[in-house]
């Protein structure tokens, strides 16, 4: 008897020897994964999307001295619909973040986000600024962080290699983008600009805090009225 690792959720299945000799039994994903990942990791197309200072280093990385074409990444696409990777290259401001989330939503899966530089990762030196988002990971799932201000082209390539390594770890069998029944599952709510940036996932908290405040005001007004009476 052979115990085959099919990778299926039902667990291992016992298979008679005579069948095992003649029929392929095994993990198809394990066979296909290297091929699948090899082709994906060597053709990651980024969006033509520069935000700030880091974008200059990103362009330098793509130009002839560092030559991203060696990694199959030189095809910067101007539309998110043809690209696999979004390099958040620079400070994300509150005014810009709705656009970024919308672009991310338009990217087809599998999609990756690389946060380049201190600003994109955590706000950087501008973190305290009133118009700065303190880290794009508050709005998008980030795959690789590249520290530096700005990261040199070599540091960026190092990050891209890290992304390739991450892709190598993924498997068709568990890839989330094949498992979704709901087509809008990968869509993130686009934040809104009100008096300040509003994350729609936090609406309940915001409403609760506003209600708290109202209650406090009425309460203190009531106390005052009582004191006056």
């Amino acid at each position: 008897m052979t115990v085959a690792d099919t990778g299926s959720a039902n667990g291992d299945i016992a298979i008679p020897d005579e069948v095992a000799r003649n029929v392929f039994i095994g993990n198809i994903a394990k066979l296909l994964d290297p091929l699948y990942n090899w082709s994906r990791r060597n053709s990651i197309w980024p969006v033509t999307f520069g935000l700030a200072c880091c974008a200059i280093e990103m362009i330098c990385t793509a130009s002839s001295r560092y030559d991203l074409a060696r990694f199959g990444m030189e095809v910067f696409r101007a539309t998110p619909r043809q690209s696999d990777l979004m390099i958040i290259s620079g400070t994300v401001t509150k005014k810009m973040v709705p656009v970024i989330v919308r672009l991310y939503n338009q990217m087809p899966e599998p999609r990756y986000v690389l946060s380049m530089g201190a600003c994109a990762s955590g706000g950087g030196p501008f973190k305290e600024g009133y118009n700065v988002v303190d880290g794009i990971d508050k709005f998008l799932p980030v795959d690789v962080y590249v520290p530096g201000c700005p990261p040199t082209p070599q540091a960026l390539i190092n990050g891209l290699i890290a992304l390739q390594e991450k892709i190598d770890q993924q498997s068709i069998a568990t890839a989330p983008w094949y498992r979704k029944d709901d087509p809008t599952a990968g869509m993130l709510p686009v934040p809104v600009l009100g008096p300040d940036l509003v994350d729609l996932r936090q609406l309940d908290i915001i409403r609760a805090k506003a209600a708290d405040y109202e209650a406090q005001v009425t309460e203190s007004a009531g106390v005052e009225a009582a004191a006056q009476a």
């Binding site: 509150k94 955590g122 706000g123 973190k127 305290e128 600024g129 009133y130 700065v132 988002v133 303190d134 508050k138 809104v192 600009l193 009100g194 008096p195 300040d196 940036l197 509003v198 994350d199 936090q202 609406l203 908290i205 915001i206 409403r207 805090k209 506003a210 209600a211 405040y213 109202e214 005001v217």
Partner: peptide
């Protein structure tokens, strides 16, 4: 510490006291 740990929404945001979104301000 990370500064966001000290703000009420965990983000770099603040709203006027008592402000709650109504839906109209989305049309900016």
């Amino acid at each position: 510490f990370r500064v966001e740990e000290k703000t009420p929404y965990g983000k770099n945001v603040q709203y006027p006291p008592g402000w709650a979104p109504t839906g109209e301000e989305y049309d900016i």
